[in-house]
């Protein structure tokens, strides 16, 4: 494990915890896309099927369980919690799941390393993770007032992806057999989706003004 990978995982972990804590303490999910959260729950479910078949490390297993548990908790809060669900703005969060899920599934069936159930599901999870943030980004653009925590959540998610790219570059040079182009392409696409958001995030930070995305 290199420093970029660890920093990436920790950023990812903090992003999820920030979101869960925000929802839990202020009992509101305003500005959060349920669609994105459901897609992440699907990403983790399909990617971590190997929990049942392979043991990699304690770190790996624990982190996988945390990501699964937190993503399903967030979905539960937004859908079922009697106070939190009232703050969910259904009319703004209009992105259709199948516009994202179907193309990813078709792509995973066509482009993969091995045609086995586990491998296709793993590949599907990579493609899906790359675009799962889209409903959240659309929602951010529609919400004129982005609260600090939501902005930080999206920023941390983007930072996690950027750190993973550094991790791959590092591994590419230090581990000669480490080649995984599907991961790379999906990961680069995913990081690019944040480019626009990053630009406005840093602008607002530099000028010390509230984050707002242009319409």
């Amino acid at each position: 494990m290199n420093i970029f990978r660890l920093a990436g995982d920790m950023t990812h972990l903090v992003s999820v915890l920030v979101l869960l804590l925000k929802i839990h303490t202020i009992k509101s999910c305003a500005g959060i896309s349920l669609k994105t959260q459901e897609l992440y729950a699907l990403v983790f479910t399909t990617r971590y099927l190997d929990l049942f078949t392979d043991y990699i490390s304690l770190y790996n297993t624990v982190m996988k369980l945390i990501f699964l548990g937190s993503s399903f908790s967030i979905v539960w809060y937004i859908r079922r919690h009697k106070i939190v669900r009232r703050s969910y703005d259904k009319d703004q969060d209009t992105f259709r799941h199948y516009f994202i899920v179907l193309p990813c599934l078709v792509l995973a069936l066509l482009i993969h390393h091995k045609f086995t159930f586990k491998e296709v599901m793993w590949t599907f999870s990579l493609y899906l993770e790359a675009v799962a943030i889209l409903p959240q980004l659309v929602l951010l653009q529609r919400t004129r007032n982005i609260d600090n925590l939501t902005g930080q959540y999206v920023f941390l998610l983007g930072a996690y992806r950027a750190l993973y790219i550094l991790n791959w570059i590092y591994r590419h040079y230090t581990e000669p057999h480490y080649v995984h182009w599907i991961t790379w392409i999906a990961g680069i696409v995913q990081t690019l989706l944040y480019a626009d958001f990053f630009y406005y995030y840093f602008q607002s930070w530099k000028n010390n003004v509230k984050l707002q995305l242009p319409a």
């Binding site: 990978r5 392979d54 990699i56 790996n60 996988k64 991790n167 581990e175 480490y178 995984h180």
Partner: peptide
Amino acid sequence: TAAESGKDEL
């Protein structure tokens, strides 16, 4: 192995 195929990542 898991490391070679990147499956050791999250």
